[in-house]
Each structure stands twice: as C-alpha cells, then as structure tokens.
Nucleic acid binder design. Structure first.
Length: 343
RNA sequence: UCCGUGGUAGCUCAAUGGUAGAGCUCUUCGCUGUUAACGAAGAUGUUCGGGGUUCGAGUCCCUGCCACGGAG
C-alpha cells in the first residue's frame, strides 16, 4: 500500500504516514547505529532506511523473512525503505555487465552475482515498505561515454526490476552524472515508468552540492508534481537539506549525521562549519548544551563538557547521545521546511 | 646496610657501539544511497646527573642520585 498526497505532501504506507519533506536515518544493518527504536521515535523519526546488500549477506534476506520480516525483526513498526545495494556494489568495485553485477562479500570474500531481479527479490524478502531499483552509480567525473553506458544499464535494469516488484512499492533512480543531456534523458525514462516515487542518484548527489543543484535544475520540469522525489545520500549538513528542498526534493537519507556523531562532530548552527568538534579541549569545561536552541534529549540534559568527557573516554553512551542530537537536528530542519511550505 | 634489576617523548616501552623509534595521549584536518565508535597528517627528547674509553656511547667502564624487588 502506497499513496502520496501532493497537497499535504504526506506519504501513506501500511506502516503509517510520512509527512514530507523527510529525513530518513540510515539503519544499514537493521539498526540505526547506537539507537533503539524508542530513541528514534523520541527524536521524531518517521521512517528509516536499511540496506539490502548488508542484510542479504547477514543475516540473509531469507532469514529476515523467516523471522517475520524486518519490522518485526528489529521491532520498528513505522515505514522502512531499503536501498537496493547499488551504491555499495559500486563503492566495493563490483564488476558490471548488462546482465548483472558480480561482487565479493565484504564479510568472507565469497563471490556473488546479482541480477536486478535478485536485488528486488531480496528486498521483498526483507519486507520493506519502499524498495529501490538496482542501479549503476556514476562517479562525479565520469566521461560522457561511461556515464551513458551506466545509465543505459540502469534503465534496462529498472524495467526488469519493475517486472518483478509486484505489489511492492518500487522507486526508480535517475542517473546521468554531470551530463545535462543524460540527466534529462534519464529523468524522462524513469518518469515514463510511472513508478510511485522517483529518486535521483549518483556520486554527485549530496557529495557536490553545487553540482546537485545544477542536476536538480536540469530535471525539475520533467519530474511529476504528484510523486515523492528522493535525493539519495544527501544530507551532510543541515543547510544541504534546505537547498535540496528548494529544488523540489522531499526525501533524504545520509549516513553523515550518525557517522559524524560517532566521530565527535556535532551539528551546531552557531558554528561557521555548522558543527563543532567535541573532542577539542575548549569544551572540557563548557557547561552549555551542544546547541542552545536544540530540543533534542541530549541538549535538554547534558553539557558539552560531559559529552567531551564521554567522547575522550570512548564511553558507549556518547555514541547514543551524539547520534540522537545530530539526527534530531536533521529531522527538525526538514520539519521546519514542511510548515513553511504549508503556510 | 648489602645484593639484584631498572632509569629513553606527557604515559607504556623499543633501539648487534654507527642518523633515537613505536603505540597511546595531545594538536589539526577529513567523513555524503556506512567495508567507517573510522581515517589522514602534525608536535614532543640535555636518553637521570657527573666523569672516562672510543673516530663515534642510549648502549661499554667508574661514580653519584632515584625507583622497584630480595636479604638483613
């Protein structure tokens, strides 16, 4: 079950509604690192993302299915989107052909071969509310010829994914790198498939925000108003989300908030870099919260000095408190944009 | 008091008589559909003091100081 109301910008799924624009915390291994489902709800997470590639390798998509599906498995009753694994297979240097992609398990080095149909079947077994087509990610600086080749495979795979998705909500992914004609061609192709949602992917997206805005401007007129538009991997900084929403995109995911949190970089709007490095000794006696205006559980209770101390000691509580803060900042950022649009 | 062992970077310790190093700490930088509670770079020395041997001593010899262990 899937529906999108373009007036309220609310997505409806069988696991509940999602008010867009939305930021989806990344829970690669059926967990958002260091956080419980209760923690995620406390900071307003409406939907989370999990990863097909990782869950396929461990515990195995079939096992997730046997255990009642990912919602039951991880005790998360709100919507879940799975990434197809396209990005992982690209970054792990999988060998691509028209037929599929050959890759090595990062866990034990075992060889696998996935057709686009395999990637869909695995995601259906996992049981996400929204699944992604298997695509070929394109590097920021790829030549026109290489980009076209990757795009053509992505398109033919999208049709094959669609053929086996059945009732499951499938999003297609626009590729085309930094080449205007290819992005336009790809956008038209994906739109023509008439899928419930449309994503834009590629290394550029989120990684190079000026390039991202350019890509979005090329395709904005082609994209339908009545479907959710998802910018994959975008969300390094809160301001990136603001820029992308202005370009008409409403769904985002990024590992940055949680990874940066674990590495001591905490979002703070008072800083020119939009974040502070809590490891620095200037915070050792700083009794202020990370951000005075933040409404997250961490800022309501704990000081920079305490977080600095926990980080220096590599105490486990730090990762949880820091992750809740960074995710809350991202979620609040897009929530504010939602109310602006409606008023 | 005697015997033994040791003293090298802030810490724990390397270094056949031949340019004093590592890990941690510290400082700085990075992190983008998570191979990432990670990665990269940088800083730091009267080698306990004083003498001696040697072309050359952290290293060998003498001596003092300090720490630890054992004996009394």
């Amino acid at each position: 079950m899937f529906a999108f109301d373009s007036k309220t910008r609310i997505i409806k799924t069988s696991h509940g509604e999602i008010q867009t624009p939305v930021f989806m915390p990344v829970g690669t291994n059926a967990t958002v690192k260091s956080l419980s489902p209760e923690d995620l709800k406390a900071i307003g997470s409406q939907i989370i993302l999990a990863n097909n590639y990782h869950l396929f390798l461990r515990p195995g998509s079939e096992n997730v299915q046997k255990l009642g599906g990912i919602h039951k498995f991880m005790n998360w009753d709100r919507p879940i989107l799975t990434d197809s694994g396209g990005f992982q297979l690209w970054s792990l240097k999988g060998k691509y052909s028209e037929d599929g992609v050959e890759f090595k398990s990062q866990i034990d080095g075992k060889n696998f071969f996935w057709t686009p149909e395999d990637a869909i079947q695995s995601q259906i077994q996992i049981g996400a509310d929204i699944i992604m087509a298997l695509d070929v990610c394109t590097p920021d600086k790829a030549s026109h010829a290489d980009t076209k080749k990757a795009m053509d495979i992505t398109h033919s795979w999208l049709k094959r994914c669609k053929n086996v998705a059945g009732d499951t909500t499938l999003f297609g992914i626009i590729q085309g790198g930094m080449h205007k004609d290819l992005r336009i061609e790809s956008a038209k192709f994906v739109v023509d498939q008439d899928l419930p949602g449309i994503a834009v992917g590629g290394e550029t997206i989120g990684y190079n925000m000026d390039g991202t805005e350019e890509v979005m401007s090329w395709i904005s007129d082609i994209l339908p108003k009545d479907k959710p538009k998802y910018a994959m991997g975008l969300g390094l900084r809160p301001s990136d989300l603001v820029r992308a929403v202005k370009c008409g995109f409403y769904m985002f995911d990024c590992v940055a908030p949680t990874r940066l949190a674990r590495n001591g970089a905490l979002y703070c709007k008072d800083s020119p870099t939009e974040r502070i490095d809590i490891s620095k000794s200037i915070y050792a006696l700083d009794e202020n919260p990370i951000d005075n205006c933040c409404d997250c559980p961490t800022c309501k209770t704990y000081s920079r000095a305490y977080l600095h101390h926990l980080f220096k000691c590599k105490e486990l509580l730090f990762y949880r408190l820091a992750s809740m803060h960074n995710l809350r900042v991202m979620i609040r950022t897009v929530t504010k944009l939602s109310s602006h649009h409606q008023s």
